[in-house]
Simulated scan of single mutants.
Amino acid sequence: MPREYTGHVLGYEGDKLIIDIGQSEIDWQKLLRYNNGQFPQIELVFDDQQRRSLLQNKHMHAVIGDIAAWQGEDPGEVKMWFKWAFANAFELDDIKTSHMTMEQASAFISTLITFAVKHGVPLTQYQPLDMLSPGDIEAFEYQCLIHKRCVICGKNPSDMHHLDTVGAHGGNREHIDHLRLRAVQLCREHHQMAGQTGVDTFLERYHLTGIKIDERIAKGHKLNMR
């Protein structure tokens, strides 16, 4: 169960606030057990547009929720583990997501998504192509090519789909130099859809740009680089 929520202030009277946190399934009994029968203390952080945004916070918890459901773990425990791993990787002191800068929050979300793509976590609460910024979608596309997960639905097996016409680069796909050609990773269903709708329409529908194949991608897909 998450132990951190995002809400909106509905009103105030003196030092008392009325806050809508948009949650109807808070396990109050569990919270009381955690706090020896007392109502828990909370930390109130107002969004000053410098720390992570409310939208970023929503995205964090959506990905964490998907990872927790896949692992069969408590989302709060999953969040604590990723916070520790993130702080350790970036040589930070123990960090609170509510105190992250927007840049740190973006990197944290990227870490969560990379884990999800690598391990095939079904993303149901979090829809990367609808929720990510354009720059972050490109990073997501790259991770899907590296880990061979369909960029639309996350399925594996999947195949690389070339966006540039191979004939314009020497013809035979087995003998051309694939470096710098654009590609996306797609399952059979979405591969067929891309072929039927056309490249430009397909890319626009799913907010994709395609990734230029580099050496790491080429090696992973056993493509020619000469």
Rank of each mutant, 00 (worst) to 15 (best):
P2N: 14
P2E: 11
R3F: 13
Y5L: 15
H8R: 04
G11H: 06
Y12T: 03
D15M: 09
K16Y: 12
L17K: 00
K30D: 15
L31C: 14
L32F: 11
Y34D: 10
N36S: 03
Q41Y: 10
E43H: 09
E43Q: 12
L44K: 09
L44H: 02
L44W: 01
Q49I: 06
R51W: 00
R51N: 03
Q56N: 05
I64L: 10
I67L: 12
A68L: 08
E73K: 13
P75F: 11
K79W: 10
K79Y: 10
A87N: 02
D93C: 02
D93Y: 03
I95W: 01
T97P: 00
S98M: 07
T101V: 09
T101G: 10
M102T: 15
A107F: 04
K118P: 04
H119D: 13
L129V: 00
D130V: 04
S133C: 02
S133E: 03
P134Q: 02
P134A: 05
D136Q: 04
C144G: 03
L145R: 00
R149D: 15
H162Q: 13
T165M: 09
V166E: 01
V166P: 01
A168M: 14
G170M: 08
I176R: 01
I176F: 00
D177G: 12
D177Y: 09
H178I: 02
H178L: 02
R182H: 15
E189H: 02
H191K: 07
Q192K: 14
Q192P: 03
M193P: 06
A194W: 03
T197R: 05
T197E: 08
V199T: 14
R205F: 07
T209Y: 03
E215M: 12
E215K: 12
I217H: 06
I217T: 04
A218N: 12
K219N: 11
L223G: 09
L223D: 10
